[in-house]
């Protein structure tokens, strides 16, 4: 059995974000790059599922991580290998870059199909664009069943289907059964991702990391050519609701000022 995990490298949202001079993207000269948080949960879930198979006496499924992007993405893949993935595929081809969710999903679907993954895990949405589209696009292109916002996964003994808990609005969950192969988009909070050990980091250097160009895919479907959308501009959000801002005073003074306002507003 093989579990494919798609991860995306994104800017650390705690780092200071500046808009590039072009006005069309963020300035990436001085950013920290990290694995998107839900994608780390997807990798953790893959590793947990693999360990669960071993403890039921089955052969350990191979966990393969996939990521699309420029050279810096290799760092994210090495980290995934350090966390316990067995092998990595970097969708590095020049023609694959500059796409949107449709184009990236197309390239990832091709790479996942080439590796015959029985189960595909991704994060529920990326921390940067947050469209929650790529896993659904992968599922559609591969013709596989799909669940979004997955909060629990259990494989049945013959590994023919997965029982899944998926989040709904308003504190409700939905229980699903999906035939394998399937694509599951993992929601934050399903697990606590592990930290890489020193041993894992050292082992990661020797694990295979393969570059993939997806040259079998029609070049019009991937990269900038395959994108259905284009970002025209990136701006700071509109200034606040015109609210009162209290800053630069002591905590006591801020508390007094706030309570004076609230006294009028909500009759404390």
């Amino acid at each position: 059995m093989r579990i494919g995990v798609c991860i995306k490298q994104v800017p650390d949202t705690d780092s200071h974000l500046r808009i590039a001079d072009s006005g069309r993207e963020i300035d990436d000269s001085d950013l920290n790059w990290v694995i998107s948080s839900c994608d780390l949960c997807a990798l953790e879930e893959a590793l947990v599922l693999a360990e669960a198979e071993v403890s039921r006496g089955e052969e350990r499924p191979e966990v393969v991580v996939f990521s699309l992007g420029p050279a810096r993405v290799e760092e994210a893949l090495r980290k995934a290998l350090a966390l316990g993935a067995d092998r990595a595929v970097h969708l590095a081809g020049e023609a694959l870059q500059g796409g949107d969710a449709l184009a990236d999903g197309c390239a990832l679907a091709a790479a996942l199909a080439k590796d015959h993954c029985d189960l595909v895990l991704t994060g529920a949405q990326s921390d940067d664009l947050g469209q929650a589209a790529t896993p659904a696009v992968i599922a559609e292109i591969l013709g596989l069943p799909y669940a979004w916002l997955v909060m629990a996964v259990e494989l049945d003994a013959p590994r023919q289907s997965a029982r899944v808990v998926r989040e709904l609005e308003g504190g409700m969950n939905e229980l699903l059964r999906l035939d394998l192969p399937a694509v599951l988009a993992i929601q934050a909070g399903i697990n606590k991702p592990r930290f890489a050990s020193l041993r894992g980091t050292l082992q990661a250097r020797r694990k295979p990391l393969h570059r993939e160009d997806c040259s079998a895919v029609d070049a019009g479907l991937v990269g900038a050519a395959g994108a259905g959308t284009e970002t025209e501009s990136v701006t700071l959000p509109p200034a606040g609701a015109g609210g009162v801002v209290i800053e630069g005073v002591s905590a006591e003074a801020a508390a007094e000022e706030l309570l004076a306002h609230l006294e009028r507003e909500v009759a404390l």
Binding site: I26, L129, A227, T229, T231, E232, S233, V234, T235, P238
Partner: peptide
């Protein structure tokens, strides 16, 4: 941030 997106 906010992005303005144009469908192609």
């Amino acid at each position: 941030l906010r992005a303005e997106v144009r469908p192609k």
